[in-house]
Structure formats: structure tokens, C-alpha cells
Design a protein around this nucleic acid. Structure first.
Lengths: 233, 233
DNA sequence: GCCGGGGCGTGATTCAAATCACATAGCACC
DNA sequence: GGTGCTATGTGATTTGAATCACGCCCCGGC
């Protein structure tokens, strides 16, 4: 499907690009839709595209030696993934799966790399993104060190609350929330345990389901306190 | 202490540098020694140096919300750390601690960034390093998904075996091995559990201690098999 | 040679999460 | 409106790692 320069510009990573670069890139790019569980990027292969998420939610997943799924990160609309090969031309290290029906812009790595090599600001932005990825992973790693399991779930949930709502007292919502299983693999715990934590949160009216497309956070402040260990569940 | 261009060149990350760049950098750099437990980099601060490890072993550590130590990675001689700020000028996200008496070259970030910005090959090398860091972290994350705890320990041990010995059948050695506690925080388990796994490995003559400076791997192949789940402990 | 602290070794006990085994509920697609 | 799959809910049981509580060893400093 056709990709316009304006669509590309809507992604913060590309917003500093010159118009003609943007146009060239748009002509090489394509729009793809994925149904739930669709495989956006394959691990092990040398991927030729960077993926910008327009709509939906993706998850990066890896597998342990013994075949268990491990969740690495979530991708929100406006973010992107698959950028590692831009730097080292290596194989894509992890799978990326669509958690909900998603719309993804595929930008060819070769074209993007060319622009990156001639435009310091773009190289900079991409370096920044990679650095952010590392910071993100350190944070996620620190969650796995929490011995208190309900707290771990609340921390993960807290990370999914939109930033704009984190300081306010009003209710918030997480659009296209991951399933219990998808949260479980992020935190290396069982699906049942995640379900039981959610049960407690719902009984205490801290969160509420609104269909499968939204998870309402009634008590943003309390969720935060539990995540920070100030309150126990 | 004085740093020579030749010393800098011995680090693979800088080996492509032009002589005059190397000289300039060497004049700004300094050599520092750390005793065991010395803090090489502080978390939270905006660090002004990248650290090249000449001798010893370092560990990147973070803390959970509830104050537990979390191990992120080990640094071997020839590797470096603290490079995140080069890209995003942000604060150092994790602590870096000397696990054994260590010799570290401190290269000022400003000088290195300047060279990186004018030399595409250096920028490339540094991007490569950051990409490698991400791959490393994904691997470490996958270890935490292993439900079989002895296997987890063996995987971590396997990662510390020098690459050159991994394919051979001969015995190998890990110089300056981490303590049980330091391994424990890498794998989010208790020190006692690590000790018990080591006891089993020693009873089966798979590994052996040689003072505190070396851990001998007698049965490289068996360790590998346990790490890969082909054999159980 | 004595002292002290950090790292290691080990048993006893606890306890919470994994696992197993279903039941039920939603949703998507005929 | 039925059908089937996936997600969620829940109890019973098991299990094995964390925790606690020590003792010991080794090494470096005095």
C-alpha cells in the first residue's frame, strides 16, 4: 500500500528529514496490516526493513534454550523496531509479533542507512533511539529482580500507562492492553499468577476491563504506590 | 597516570583511529586503578568519561525499587562501558563496580564524541558496540526465563568461558571469576542457590577452584551440554 | 600469630508461585 | 445464532528456591 511523506513525517524519528529524502524513502516504503499474532519480524533472518508502528501494539519476543517464550518489550504506536541491523547489519535477534491488529510502515533498511550516513541529525536520532532501547531494557531487567510478584505486575502495568496520565489523579486507560499471557512472559511468571493479581486489582476497583480493547485504570495513584512498594496489594 | 596512544590502540574500539586523533585523545585520558568493590561509574550522574577496561573485571549493576542489587553485565579486559551518554548525553543508567583490582582507562566523552562526529568509521564502530550491547542484554534476558535453576547458572558460566576454548575438549579457565553473590544477582537468585549448584559441579569434577583468581573448567563439553539442557545436573 | 571480615558451605524451615486440571466467558467467523 | 478458539477464572497440590541461622575457611592487615 502507498506511503506518503506526510505519513513518515508523523513518526518522531523521521520528522527532521529533508523533504526530498522523505519523498525518496516514502516511495520505497510500504504499509502492511497484521492480524493478531501476525509475525512482523522474524528472528535469525537478516531483516531488510525497519518497522514503524502506526496503529496497534507489537511485542518483541525471544525464546529460552528450552523453548519458553520470553517477552522483551512492547511497541506503542509512533515507536519503531527492527533498527539493530541498521548499525551492525546483523540478523534480527528477536521476533516481533502483533498483539492486536496492527498497521506497520516498512521502511527499507538500505535507504534509511544511506540517509543516516549522510545526515548527522538522523544518525544522531537513531543513536538516541538505540540508547533509549538500552535504558528501556535495563529498566525491564530491574523489574525481574523484584521478589514481590504482585508488585512486579503493577510495575509492568504502570509502564503501560500513558505518560500524560501518570501525574494526574483522574482515571486513565491502556489501549489494546496485552493479554495476561503476554504480560506473564514479560515478567517470567505464569499466566495464572498474572490473572490472580488482576483479580485482586479488580476487586479493589483499581482497574477495570472495558471490552478487550481497553483497560481502565481507576486509581492511577494507588497503582503507582503499589508499583513503588509504598502500598501492598 | 599517563596514557599512551599505543595503549589506546590496543582497544579494538579505537584501533581504526588516525594517529593524531589518537594522540589528542591520549593526552586527555587518564589511567585509574580500582580496588575490589571500587565504584568505576556512578548511576544517576552525567558521567564525563567512557571507561576502557585494561585489566581486571567489572560488573554493571542496577537496583530494584525495593533496593535489591541487579547484575546487568560483566566487562572483560579489552571491552568498555559507560558509552551510552555518547549518544544521548543522558545520565549514566547503571553503576559499574570493580569485581577485582582493575586498571581502567578513562577517555573523556567530549573528545571521543568529537572524533565520533567527524569520523564515520568511529561512529560506526560505536554504533556497532551499542548494537552488541542490546544483543547481549537480550541474551541475558533469555537466561532469566529458564525455569531450571542449575541450567541458568551453567549458562551464565558458559558465557564467561573464553570463546577460544568453547569448541575444544581441553580444560579451560575463567580468570578473575565473579563471586557466587555476583553471579546470583545476574540471575536473580539467592547466593546459597548458586553455591549449591557449584557444589554439584565440583563434586562431578566439572569445575574446580584454583585459588580465588581462577576457576578451572575441567569438562568444557559437559558444561556446555548442561547449559543447553542436553544433560541435567 | 592474632584478628576480623568477606566469601563459602550447609541444614532446617517456610511459603508462595508453578503446575495441573478444569470451568467459563468472550469474540470472531461462519 | 451456533461453533470453536482463545482468554480468563479458580481450586488443589506440589515443589523447590528463598530465607534464616549458623559454622568454617581464607586472606590480608596489624
Amino acid at each position: 500500500m502507498i506511503v506518503t511523506p506526510d505519513l513518515l513525517r508523523s513518526f518522531s524519528i523521521l520528522k527532521t528529514l529533508a523533504d526530498n529524502d522523505l519523498l525518496g524513502l516514502a516511495q520505497q516504503s510500504s504499509l502492511r496490516k497484521f492480524t493478531r499474532r501476525g509475525i512482523v519480524l522474524n528472528a535469525g533472518e537478516k531483516e531488510e526493513h525497519v518497522c514503524l508502528l502506526f496503529e496497534g501494539r507489537l511485542q518483541g519476543v525471544d525464546f529460552t534454550i528450552d523453548g519458553r517464550e520470553v517477552g522483551l518489550y512492547f511497541v506503542q504506536p509512533g515507536e519503531f523496531c527492527g533498527e539493530l541491523g541498521l548499525f551492525d547489519r546483523g540478523p534480527q535477534p528477536e521476533y516481533v509479533i502483533a498483539l492486536t491488529p496492527s498497521v506497520v510502515v516498512f521502511v527499507p533498511m538500505s535507504g534509511l542507512r544511506e540517509i543516516m550516513n549522510k545526515t548527522p541529525t538522523v544518525a544522531n536520532t537513531l543513536g538516541l533511539k538505540l540508547a533509549d532501547r538500552v535504558r528501556q531494557m535495563i529498566f525491564q531487567r530491574s523489574l525481574l529482580g523484584l521478589p514481590n510478584i504482585p508488585q512486579r505486575v503493577c510495575c509492568q502495568l504502570w509502564a503501560l500507562v500513558p505518560n500524560k496520565d501518570k501525574e494526574s489523579d483522574a482515571a486513565s486507560a491502556i489501549a489494546n492492553p496485552p493479554t495476561h499471557m503476554e504480560i506473564a512472559i514479560m515478567l517470567s511468571m505464569s499466566r495464572e499468577t498474572v490473572t490472580r493479581v488482576f483479580q485482586t486489582l479488580q476487586k479493589r476497583q483499581i482497574v477495570r476491563r472495558d471490552g478487550s480493547a481497553n483497560l481502565i485504570i481507576n486509581e492511577v495513584k494507588i497503582l503507582k504506590d503499589i508499583a513503588e512498594g509504598k502500598e501492598s496489594i
